[in-house]
Amino acid sequence: GKMTGIVKWFNADKGFGFITPDDGSKDVFVHFSAIQNDGYKSLDEGQKVSFTIESGAKGPAAGNVTSL
C-alpha cells in the first residue's frame, strides 16, 4: 500500500536519492523515473512524499512517488 515519508536527499544530476519512511523502516532508494509529475522529475530534501515499495533489481525501491 501507500506509505509516506520525507526525502532524505536527492541528487538531481544523477537522478536518484533516498526517502526516509514515516514508519521508521529502512531508507528507500528512489529513482527519478518513479516520480509522478509532468514536469521536471526531481525531489527536494525534506519534502514530504507518498510512495509504494516496488522490488527492483537492486532491492526495494520507491514507486508512484507523489509530493504531498
Rank of each mutant, 00 (worst) to 15 (best):
G1V: 11
K2L: 04
M3P: 03
T4Q: 12
T4K: 14
G5V: 00
G5P: 00
I6R: 14
I6T: 15
K8M: 02
K8R: 10
K8N: 06
F10L: 03
F10N: 02
N11V: 03
N11D: 08
N11F: 04
A12G: 11
D13P: 15
D13K: 15
K14N: 05
K14V: 08
K14R: 15
K14P: 02
K14T: 05
K14E: 08
G15L: 02
F16C: 07
F16P: 01
G17E: 00
F18Y: 08
F18I: 05
F18V: 07
I19E: 01
I19Q: 01
T20G: 08
T20A: 14
P21L: 03
P21I: 01
D22L: 06
D23W: 05
D23S: 09
D23K: 08
G24V: 02
S25I: 05
K26D: 11
K26Y: 06
K26V: 12
V28I: 13
V28Q: 03
F29N: 03
F29W: 10
V30E: 01
H31W: 02
S33H: 05
S33N: 08
S33Y: 03
Q36N: 09
Q36R: 13
Q36V: 14
N37Y: 14
D38Y: 10
D38H: 14
G39F: 07
K41R: 14
S42R: 13
S42D: 08
D44H: 15
D44K: 15
D44M: 11
D44A: 14
E45I: 10
E45Y: 10
E45M: 14
G46Q: 05
G46D: 05
G46I: 02
K48D: 04
K48I: 06
K48T: 10
V49N: 00
V49Y: 01
S50N: 08
S50E: 10
F51H: 02
T52D: 13
T52L: 07
T52C: 09
T52E: 10
I53G: 03
G56E: 07
G56A: 10
G56W: 07
G56H: 10
A57D: 12
P60K: 07
P60Q: 11
A61D: 03
A62D: 01
A62W: 02
A62P: 02
G63F: 10
T66G: 05
S67R: 12
S67N: 06
L68S: 13
L68V: 13
